[in-house]
Design a protein around this nucleic acid. Sequence first.
RNA 1: GUGGGUGUAGCUCAGCUGGUUAGAGUGCCGGGUUGUGGCCCCGGAGGUCGAGGGUUCGAACCCCUUCACUCACCCCA
Length: 424
Amino acid sequence: MEKITAVKGIKDVLPGDSPVWHRLELAARRVFECFGFCEIRVPIMEKTSLFQRSIGEATDIVEKEMYTFRDRDDELLTLRPEATASVIRAYIEHNLSASDPVTRLYTMGPMFRRERPQKGRFRQFHQIDAELFGDDSPAADAEVIFMLMHFLQTLGIGKLSLEINSLGCKACRPVFSGAVVDYLKGRESSLCPDCQRRIHTNPLRVFDCKVESCGEVIDGAPRILDFLCADCSEHFSRVKSYLSDLNLPYEINPRMVRGLDYYTRTAFEVKSGGLGAQNSLAGGGRYDGLVQFLGGPDIAGIGFGIGMERLIACLPPDDRNPYAAEIFIAALGERAQKIAFTLTQELRRRGICAAMDYSGKSLKSQMKRADKLHSAYTLIFGDREIEENCAELRDMNTKNQQRLPLDQLLEAVTDILKREVKVL
RNA sequence: GUGGGUGUAGCUCAGCUGGUUAGAGUGCCGGGUUGUGGCCCCGGAGGUCGAGGGUUCGAACCCCUUCACUCACCCCA
Protein backbone atom coordinates (compact mmCIF):
# COMPACT_ATOMS: atom_id res chain seq x y z
CA MET A 1 0.00 0.00 0.00
CA GLU A 2 1.27 3.42 -0.89
CA LYS A 3 2.50 5.43 2.02
CA ILE A 4 0.54 8.59 2.61
CA THR A 5 2.82 11.44 3.57
CA ALA A 6 2.43 15.15 4.12
CA VAL A 7 2.30 17.32 1.02
CA LYS A 8 5.63 18.63 -0.28
CA GLY A 9 6.80 21.74 1.50
CA ILE A 10 4.17 21.38 4.23
CA LYS A 11 5.37 20.43 7.67
CA ASP A 12 4.01 19.14 10.95
CA VAL A 13 4.79 20.95 14.16
CA LEU A 14 5.57 18.03 16.46
CA PRO A 15 5.01 18.04 20.25
CA GLY A 16 8.68 18.71 20.84
CA ASP A 17 8.48 21.86 18.74
CA SER A 18 5.25 23.31 20.01
CA PRO A 19 6.70 25.07 23.09
CA VAL A 20 8.73 27.39 20.85
CA TRP A 21 5.65 28.22 18.84
CA HIS A 22 3.69 28.96 21.98
CA ARG A 23 6.43 31.21 23.26
CA LEU A 24 6.53 33.10 20.00
CA GLU A 25 2.81 33.58 19.76
CA LEU A 26 2.51 34.68 23.35
CA ALA A 27 5.40 37.13 23.03
CA ALA A 28 3.85 38.64 19.91
CA ARG A 29 0.49 39.10 21.60
CA ARG A 30 2.04 40.76 24.61
CA VAL A 31 4.20 43.16 22.64
CA PHE A 32 1.60 44.05 20.03
CA GLU A 33 -1.09 44.65 22.60
CA CYS A 34 1.19 47.11 24.42
CA PHE A 35 1.23 49.07 21.19
CA GLY A 36 -2.55 49.02 20.98
CA PHE A 37 -2.93 46.30 18.37
CA CYS A 38 -5.94 43.97 18.55
CA GLU A 39 -6.14 40.55 17.03
CA ILE A 40 -8.22 39.96 13.95
CA ARG A 41 -8.68 36.44 12.64
CA VAL A 42 -9.22 36.27 8.93
CA PRO A 43 -9.99 33.22 6.81
CA ILE A 44 -7.42 31.07 5.14
CA MET A 45 -9.04 31.38 1.72
CA GLU A 46 -10.43 34.25 -0.24
CA LYS A 47 -11.79 34.96 -3.66
CA THR A 48 -8.89 34.87 -6.08
CA SER A 49 -9.61 38.36 -7.34
CA LEU A 50 -8.71 39.86 -3.96
CA PHE A 51 -5.11 38.75 -4.30
CA GLN A 52 -4.93 39.52 -7.99
CA ARG A 53 -5.91 43.09 -7.34
CA SER A 54 -3.92 43.75 -4.19
CA ILE A 55 -0.66 41.92 -4.78
CA GLY A 56 -0.53 42.70 -8.46
CA GLU A 57 -1.08 40.63 -11.60
CA ALA A 58 2.53 40.85 -12.72
CA THR A 59 4.06 39.56 -9.49
CA ASP A 60 5.54 36.10 -9.13
CA ILE A 61 3.12 35.32 -6.33
CA VAL A 62 0.04 35.85 -8.46
CA GLU A 63 1.57 34.60 -11.68
CA LYS A 64 2.77 31.23 -10.50
CA GLU A 65 2.67 30.66 -6.78
CA MET A 66 -0.95 30.73 -5.68
CA TYR A 67 -2.97 27.69 -4.72
CA THR A 68 -6.07 28.48 -6.70
CA PHE A 69 -8.98 26.16 -7.34
CA ARG A 70 -12.50 26.26 -8.61
CA ASP A 71 -15.20 25.75 -6.01
CA ARG A 72 -18.22 23.59 -6.79
CA ASP A 73 -20.18 26.63 -7.88
CA ASP A 74 -17.37 27.60 -10.26
CA GLU A 75 -16.09 30.43 -8.12
CA LEU A 76 -12.30 30.84 -8.11
CA LEU A 77 -10.82 30.62 -4.63
CA THR A 78 -7.24 30.94 -3.42
CA LEU A 79 -5.39 29.85 -0.31
CA ARG A 80 -3.96 33.09 0.98
CA PRO A 81 -0.33 33.77 0.03
CA GLU A 82 -0.10 36.62 2.53
CA ALA A 83 -2.29 38.26 5.16
CA THR A 84 -2.55 41.95 4.33
CA ALA A 85 -5.11 41.53 1.57
CA SER A 86 -7.49 39.60 3.82
CA VAL A 87 -7.11 42.05 6.67
CA ILE A 88 -7.91 44.96 4.39
CA ARG A 89 -10.86 43.10 2.91
CA ALA A 90 -12.27 42.51 6.38
CA TYR A 91 -11.46 46.07 7.40
CA ILE A 92 -13.48 47.40 4.48
CA GLU A 93 -16.25 44.81 4.65
CA HIS A 94 -17.01 45.48 8.31
CA ASN A 95 -16.46 49.19 7.98
CA LEU A 96 -13.99 49.22 10.85
CA SER A 97 -12.86 52.74 9.98
CA ALA A 98 -16.29 53.99 11.06
CA SER A 99 -15.83 53.00 14.68
CA ASP A 100 -12.28 54.25 14.97
CA PRO A 101 -10.36 56.39 12.51
CA VAL A 102 -7.09 54.74 13.52
CA THR A 103 -7.13 50.97 13.73
CA ARG A 104 -4.31 48.70 14.75
CA LEU A 105 -4.69 45.02 13.90
CA TYR A 106 -2.56 41.91 14.06
CA THR A 107 -3.09 38.36 12.96
CA MET A 108 -1.08 35.17 12.65
CA GLY A 109 -1.43 31.90 10.84
CA PRO A 110 -0.55 29.84 7.80
CA MET A 111 0.10 31.24 4.32
CA PHE A 112 0.48 29.24 1.11
CA ARG A 113 2.77 29.68 -1.85
CA ARG A 114 3.66 27.01 -4.36
CA GLU A 115 7.39 27.52 -4.52
CA ARG A 116 10.18 25.00 -4.60
CA PRO A 117 10.96 24.37 -0.92
CA GLN A 118 14.39 25.03 0.52
CA LYS A 119 15.92 26.18 3.77
CA GLY A 120 13.57 28.75 5.29
CA ARG A 121 11.01 28.43 2.52
CA PHE A 122 7.94 26.24 2.58
CA ARG A 123 4.69 25.91 0.71
CA GLN A 124 2.73 26.31 3.89
CA PHE A 125 4.48 28.75 6.18
CA HIS A 126 3.36 30.95 9.03
CA GLN A 127 3.41 34.67 9.47
CA ILE A 128 2.73 37.12 12.22
CA ASP A 129 1.24 40.14 10.62
CA ALA A 130 0.47 43.64 11.88
CA GLU A 131 -1.35 46.47 10.12
CA LEU A 132 -2.01 50.06 11.11
CA PHE A 133 -4.79 51.90 9.29
CA GLY A 134 -5.80 55.52 9.19
CA ASP A 135 -2.57 57.30 10.00
CA ASP A 136 -0.26 58.53 7.27
CA SER A 137 2.13 60.37 9.54
CA PRO A 138 5.81 59.38 9.66
CA ALA A 139 5.33 58.60 13.34
CA ALA A 140 3.11 55.69 12.40
CA ASP A 141 5.88 54.29 10.20
CA ALA A 142 8.40 54.64 12.99
CA GLU A 143 6.05 53.11 15.54
CA VAL A 144 5.42 50.04 13.42
CA ILE A 145 9.12 49.56 12.68
CA PHE A 146 9.98 50.07 16.32
CA MET A 147 7.37 47.54 17.41
CA LEU A 148 8.78 44.98 14.99
CA MET A 149 12.34 45.49 16.15
CA HIS A 150 11.35 45.52 19.78
CA PHE A 151 9.49 42.25 19.35
CA LEU A 152 12.47 40.58 17.70
CA GLN A 153 14.81 41.88 20.38
CA THR A 154 12.45 40.63 23.09
CA LEU A 155 12.94 37.14 21.72
CA GLY A 156 16.67 37.53 22.03
CA ILE A 157 17.54 37.43 18.37
CA GLY A 158 20.97 38.88 17.72
CA LYS A 159 22.57 40.05 14.50
CA LEU A 160 19.52 41.85 13.20
CA SER A 161 19.83 44.35 10.42
CA LEU A 162 17.13 46.82 9.56
CA GLU A 163 17.01 48.21 6.05
CA ILE A 164 14.69 50.97 4.98
CA ASN A 165 13.88 52.75 1.78
CA SER A 166 11.23 54.93 0.30
CA LEU A 167 9.43 53.79 -2.80
CA GLY A 168 7.73 57.10 -3.51
CA CYS A 169 4.09 57.59 -4.29
CA LYS A 170 1.76 57.67 -7.26
CA ALA A 171 3.20 60.99 -8.26
CA CYS A 172 6.92 60.33 -8.15
CA ARG A 173 7.36 56.60 -8.62
CA PRO A 174 6.32 56.52 -12.29
CA VAL A 175 8.88 59.22 -13.08
CA PHE A 176 11.53 57.10 -11.42
CA SER A 177 10.42 53.91 -13.16
CA GLY A 178 10.63 55.68 -16.47
CA ALA A 179 14.14 56.81 -15.74
CA VAL A 180 15.17 53.31 -14.75
CA VAL A 181 13.76 51.78 -17.90
CA ASP A 182 15.56 54.35 -20.04
CA TYR A 183 18.80 53.65 -18.20
CA LEU A 184 18.49 49.88 -18.43
CA LYS A 185 17.51 49.87 -22.08
CA GLY A 186 20.75 51.57 -22.92
CA ARG A 187 22.68 48.83 -21.15
CA GLU A 188 20.55 45.81 -21.97
CA SER A 189 23.50 43.82 -23.32
CA SER A 190 25.35 43.95 -19.99
CA LEU A 191 22.44 42.45 -18.10
CA CYS A 192 21.70 38.80 -17.38
CA PRO A 193 18.87 37.23 -19.39
CA ASP A 194 16.53 37.41 -16.41
CA CYS A 195 17.06 41.12 -16.03
CA GLN A 196 16.64 41.73 -19.72
CA ARG A 197 13.23 40.19 -19.36
CA ARG A 198 12.50 42.19 -16.23
CA ILE A 199 12.99 45.48 -18.04
CA HIS A 200 9.67 44.81 -19.68
CA THR A 201 7.82 42.97 -16.95
CA ASN A 202 8.87 44.59 -13.68
CA PRO A 203 11.88 46.88 -14.13
CA LEU A 204 12.35 47.67 -10.44
CA ARG A 205 13.03 44.01 -9.74
CA VAL A 206 16.36 44.36 -11.52
CA PHE A 207 17.56 46.01 -8.32
CA ASP A 208 17.20 42.70 -6.51
CA CYS A 209 19.41 40.81 -8.92
CA LYS A 210 22.47 39.21 -7.37
CA VAL A 211 24.38 38.58 -10.60
CA GLU A 212 27.66 40.45 -10.40
CA SER A 213 27.56 42.01 -13.84
CA CYS A 214 24.05 43.31 -13.17
CA GLY A 215 25.28 44.72 -9.88
CA GLU A 216 27.68 46.99 -11.74
CA VAL A 217 24.89 48.26 -13.95
CA ILE A 218 22.63 48.75 -10.95
CA ASP A 219 25.25 50.75 -9.10
CA GLY A 220 25.04 53.43 -11.72
CA ALA A 221 21.26 53.33 -12.08
CA PRO A 222 19.03 56.19 -11.01
CA ARG A 223 18.11 56.11 -7.34
CA ILE A 224 14.56 56.38 -6.16
CA LEU A 225 15.62 58.71 -3.38
CA ASP A 226 16.69 61.27 -5.99
CA PHE A 227 13.27 61.17 -7.55
CA LEU A 228 11.06 61.51 -4.50
CA CYS A 229 8.58 64.34 -4.61
CA ALA A 230 8.70 66.98 -1.89
CA ASP A 231 6.05 65.26 0.24
CA CYS A 232 7.63 61.82 0.02
CA SER A 233 11.04 63.22 0.71
CA GLU A 234 9.80 65.09 3.77
CA HIS A 235 7.98 61.98 4.97
CA PHE A 236 11.05 59.82 4.62
CA SER A 237 13.35 62.19 6.46
CA ARG A 238 10.91 62.45 9.33
CA VAL A 239 10.68 58.66 9.57
CA LYS A 240 14.46 58.53 9.80
CA SER A 241 14.47 61.23 12.41
CA TYR A 242 11.97 59.31 14.56
CA LEU A 243 14.00 56.14 14.26
CA SER A 244 17.09 58.01 15.39
CA ASP A 245 15.16 59.42 18.35
CA LEU A 246 14.40 55.82 19.33
CA ASN A 247 18.07 54.88 18.96
CA LEU A 248 17.11 52.34 16.37
CA PRO A 249 20.02 51.68 14.02
CA TYR A 250 19.07 51.28 10.37
CA GLU A 251 20.60 51.25 6.95
CA ILE A 252 19.19 52.91 3.91
CA ASN A 253 19.01 50.50 1.03
CA PRO A 254 18.03 52.45 -2.05
CA ARG A 255 17.92 49.20 -4.01
CA MET A 256 15.27 47.58 -1.87
CA VAL A 257 12.03 47.05 -3.74
CA ARG A 258 9.41 44.89 -2.17
CA GLY A 259 7.92 42.00 -4.06
CA LEU A 260 4.34 43.14 -3.81
CA ASP A 261 3.09 45.93 -6.01
CA TYR A 262 1.08 47.78 -3.43
CA TYR A 263 3.83 49.39 -1.38
CA THR A 264 4.31 53.15 -1.34
CA ARG A 265 6.74 55.37 0.51
CA THR A 266 8.39 53.61 3.43
CA ALA A 267 9.48 50.03 2.84
CA PHE A 268 11.57 48.01 5.28
CA GLU A 269 13.10 44.64 5.73
CA VAL A 270 14.78 42.87 8.61
CA LYS A 271 17.50 40.36 7.87
CA SER A 272 19.38 37.97 10.07
CA GLY A 273 22.52 35.94 9.54
CA GLY A 274 22.54 32.17 9.82
CA LEU A 275 19.36 31.68 7.85
CA GLY A 276 20.91 30.49 4.63
CA ALA A 277 19.89 32.09 1.38
CA GLN A 278 16.47 33.06 2.69
CA ASN A 279 17.73 35.57 5.20
CA SER A 280 14.77 37.89 5.27
CA LEU A 281 13.03 37.58 8.63
CA ALA A 282 10.39 40.21 8.20
CA GLY A 283 9.33 42.78 5.69
CA GLY A 284 6.73 45.42 5.25
CA GLY A 285 5.89 48.91 4.26
CA ARG A 286 3.33 51.57 3.63
CA TYR A 287 0.45 51.08 1.21
CA ASP A 288 -1.48 54.29 1.19
CA GLY A 289 -3.61 53.75 -1.89
CA LEU A 290 -4.47 50.13 -1.36
CA VAL A 291 -7.56 50.34 0.84
CA GLN A 292 -9.24 52.61 -1.66
CA PHE A 293 -8.00 50.51 -4.56
CA LEU A 294 -9.78 47.53 -3.02
CA GLY A 295 -13.03 49.43 -2.79
CA GLY A 296 -12.76 51.06 0.62
CA PRO A 297 -12.38 54.65 1.77
CA ASP A 298 -9.17 56.56 1.06
CA ILE A 299 -7.33 55.42 4.14
CA ALA A 300 -3.61 55.07 4.66
CA GLY A 301 -2.06 51.84 5.84
CA ILE A 302 1.25 50.39 6.89
CA GLY A 303 2.16 46.93 8.08
CA PHE A 304 4.61 44.06 8.13
CA GLY A 305 4.82 40.30 8.06
CA ILE A 306 7.20 38.13 10.04
CA GLY A 307 8.12 34.63 8.93
CA MET A 308 7.59 32.40 11.95
CA GLU A 309 9.60 29.41 10.73
CA ARG A 310 12.53 31.72 9.97
CA LEU A 311 12.15 33.36 13.33
CA ILE A 312 12.28 29.99 15.05
CA ALA A 313 15.37 29.12 13.06
CA CYS A 314 17.10 32.14 14.64
CA LEU A 315 16.04 31.22 18.16
CA PRO A 316 18.11 29.17 20.56
CA PRO A 317 16.68 25.64 20.76
CA ASP A 318 13.99 25.14 23.35
CA ASP A 319 14.50 21.82 25.13
CA ARG A 320 11.63 22.17 27.51
CA ASN A 321 9.47 19.12 27.82
CA PRO A 322 6.10 19.75 26.20
CA TYR A 323 4.41 18.06 29.13
CA ALA A 324 5.35 17.91 32.81
CA ALA A 325 3.06 16.14 35.26
CA GLU A 326 2.54 17.59 38.69
CA ILE A 327 1.70 14.19 40.10
CA PHE A 328 1.91 10.63 38.86
CA ILE A 329 -0.41 8.05 40.39
CA ALA A 330 1.25 4.65 40.62
CA ALA A 331 -1.33 2.04 41.52
CA LEU A 332 -0.64 -1.64 42.19
CA GLY A 333 -3.35 -4.17 41.68
CA GLU A 334 -6.88 -3.91 40.41
CA ARG A 335 -8.47 -2.41 43.48
CA ALA A 336 -5.89 0.35 43.67
CA GLN A 337 -6.09 1.01 39.98
CA LYS A 338 -9.82 1.53 40.16
CA ILE A 339 -9.42 4.09 42.93
CA ALA A 340 -6.48 5.69 41.10
CA PHE A 341 -8.47 6.09 37.94
CA THR A 342 -11.16 8.23 39.51
CA LEU A 343 -8.59 10.09 41.57
CA THR A 344 -6.62 10.99 38.46
CA GLN A 345 -9.65 12.35 36.63
CA GLU A 346 -10.80 14.25 39.72
CA LEU A 347 -7.40 15.89 40.08
CA ARG A 348 -7.47 16.87 36.44
CA ARG A 349 -10.93 18.33 36.93
CA ARG A 350 -9.37 20.51 39.59
CA GLY A 351 -6.78 21.78 37.19
CA ILE A 352 -3.91 19.60 38.33
CA CYS A 353 -1.74 17.87 35.74
CA ALA A 354 -2.10 14.31 36.95
CA ALA A 355 -0.96 11.23 35.08
CA MET A 356 -1.19 7.48 35.53
CA ASP A 357 -0.67 4.28 33.61
CA TYR A 358 -3.64 2.01 32.93
CA SER A 359 -1.80 -1.09 31.82
CA GLY A 360 -0.95 -2.50 35.26
CA LYS A 361 2.82 -2.42 34.91
CA SER A 362 5.32 -3.02 37.67
CA LEU A 363 5.98 -0.29 40.19
CA LYS A 364 9.46 0.09 38.78
CA SER A 365 8.23 0.86 35.31
CA GLN A 366 5.55 3.16 36.69
CA MET A 367 8.26 5.03 38.56
CA LYS A 368 10.27 5.30 35.38
CA ARG A 369 7.26 6.69 33.66
CA ALA A 370 6.75 9.23 36.45
CA ASP A 371 10.35 10.28 36.08
CA LYS A 372 10.06 10.65 32.36
CA LEU A 373 7.06 12.92 32.75
CA HIS A 374 9.11 15.03 35.18
CA SER A 375 6.44 14.60 37.74
CA ALA A 376 7.04 16.47 40.98
CA TYR A 377 5.25 13.86 43.11
CA THR A 378 4.31 10.25 42.78
CA LEU A 379 1.43 8.79 44.73
CA ILE A 380 2.01 5.09 45.43
CA PHE A 381 -0.49 2.62 46.76
CA GLY A 382 -1.47 -1.03 46.45
CA ASP A 383 -3.28 -3.64 48.52
CA ARG A 384 -0.93 -3.13 51.43
CA GLU A 385 -1.82 0.58 51.74
CA ILE A 386 -5.49 -0.04 51.12
CA GLU A 387 -5.54 -2.37 54.13
CA GLU A 388 -4.01 0.39 56.20
CA ASN A 389 -6.26 3.01 54.63
CA CYS A 390 -3.37 5.13 53.37
CA ALA A 391 -1.21 6.00 50.36
CA GLU A 392 2.45 7.02 50.04
CA LEU A 393 3.19 10.40 48.50
CA ARG A 394 6.75 10.57 47.25
CA ASP A 395 8.48 13.85 46.54
CA MET A 396 10.52 12.99 43.45
CA ASN A 397 13.24 15.52 44.13
CA THR A 398 13.86 14.95 47.84
CA LYS A 399 12.77 11.29 47.82
CA ASN A 400 10.81 11.98 51.00
CA GLN A 401 7.62 9.99 51.38
CA GLN A 402 4.64 10.84 53.53
CA ARG A 403 1.50 8.90 54.28
CA LEU A 404 -1.84 10.33 53.28
CA PRO A 405 -5.23 9.03 54.43
CA LEU A 406 -6.81 7.01 51.64
CA ASP A 407 -10.34 8.25 52.24
CA GLN A 408 -9.24 11.89 51.92
CA LEU A 409 -6.71 11.51 49.14
CA LEU A 410 -8.24 14.02 46.80
CA GLU A 411 -8.35 16.76 49.41
CA ALA A 412 -4.89 15.98 50.78
CA VAL A 413 -3.21 15.89 47.37
CA THR A 414 -5.04 18.97 46.12
CA ASP A 415 -3.98 20.76 49.25
CA ILE A 416 -0.30 19.93 48.90
CA LEU A 417 -0.15 20.65 45.19
CA LYS A 418 -2.03 23.91 45.38
CA ARG A 419 0.43 25.09 47.94
CA GLU A 420 3.27 24.17 45.62
CA VAL A 421 1.65 25.81 42.65
CA LYS A 422 1.22 29.04 44.56
CA VAL A 423 4.89 29.13 45.46
CA LEU A 424 5.71 28.84 41.78
C1' G B 1 10.57 25.53 -13.61
C1' U B 2 16.44 24.61 -13.59
C1' G B 3 20.88 22.64 -11.18
C1' G B 4 23.88 20.06 -7.09
C1' G B 5 23.74 16.70 -2.77
C1' U B 6 21.51 12.70 0.02
C1' G B 7 18.22 8.23 0.71
C1' U B 8 20.37 1.88 5.73
C1' A B 9 16.15 0.69 12.77
C1' G B 10 11.29 5.73 15.61
C1' C B 11 15.84 9.42 15.64
C1' U B 12 21.36 10.39 14.47
C1' C B 13 24.49 7.68 11.56
C1' A B 14 28.59 3.34 10.53
C1' G B 15 28.94 -0.39 6.78
C1' C B 16 36.60 -1.13 4.03
C1' U B 17 38.26 -2.52 -3.23
C1' G B 18 30.63 -6.18 -4.26
C1' G B 19 31.18 -11.97 -0.23
C1' U B 20 27.50 -15.54 3.78
C1' U B 21 22.57 -14.44 9.87
C1' A B 22 23.18 -5.69 7.93
C1' G B 23 25.71 -2.84 12.80
C1' A B 24 26.42 1.24 16.70
C1' G B 25 24.53 5.19 19.66
C1' U B 26 19.93 7.01 21.27
C1' G B 27 14.75 6.02 22.07
C1' C B 28 11.14 2.04 23.22
C1' C B 29 9.94 -2.73 26.17
C1' G B 30 11.68 -6.07 30.01
C1' G B 31 15.22 -7.77 33.79
C1' G B 32 19.32 -6.86 37.55
C1' U B 33 15.18 -7.48 45.54
C1' U B 34 9.82 -9.68 46.87
C1' G B 35 6.28 -3.04 45.78
C1' U B 36 10.19 2.55 44.54
C1' G B 37 12.56 6.71 39.23
C1' G B 38 17.24 9.27 37.33
C1' C B 39 23.36 6.52 37.01
C1' C B 40 25.25 1.65 35.78
C1' C B 41 24.86 -3.53 33.86
C1' C B 42 22.14 -7.39 30.99
C1' G B 43 18.47 -8.90 27.55
C1' G B 44 14.50 -7.99 23.82
C1' A B 45 11.54 -5.99 19.96
C1' G B 46 12.22 -3.03 15.60
C1' G B 47 15.07 -2.66 8.90
C1' U B 48 11.57 -5.93 1.94
C1' C B 49 19.18 -1.09 3.07
C1' G B 50 13.54 4.74 -0.89
C1' A B 51 11.21 1.96 -5.23
C1' G B 52 11.74 -0.69 -10.03
C1' G B 53 14.96 -2.91 -13.48
C1' G B 54 20.00 -4.52 -14.99
C1' U B 55 25.29 -6.54 -14.42
C1' U B 56 27.23 -10.75 -11.37
C1' C B 57 27.97 -17.27 -8.79
C1' G B 58 26.77 -13.30 -5.25
C1' A B 59 24.51 -6.22 -4.72
C1' A B 60 23.19 -1.78 0.91
C1' C B 61 27.72 -1.21 -2.24
C1' C B 62 28.40 -1.15 -9.59
C1' C B 63 24.95 0.68 -13.97
C1' C B 64 20.07 2.63 -15.67
C1' U B 65 15.22 4.53 -14.48
C1' U B 66 12.04 6.60 -11.00
C1' C B 67 10.41 8.73 -6.44
C1' A B 68 11.33 11.33 -2.01
C1' C B 69 14.05 14.61 0.90
C1' U B 70 17.55 18.55 0.95
C1' C B 71 20.51 22.86 -0.62
C1' A B 72 20.98 26.59 -4.33
C1' C B 73 19.01 29.56 -8.58
C1' C B 74 14.37 32.21 -9.15
C1' C B 75 11.45 34.78 -5.65
C1' C B 76 10.24 36.02 -0.90
C1' A B 77 8.42 35.64 5.17
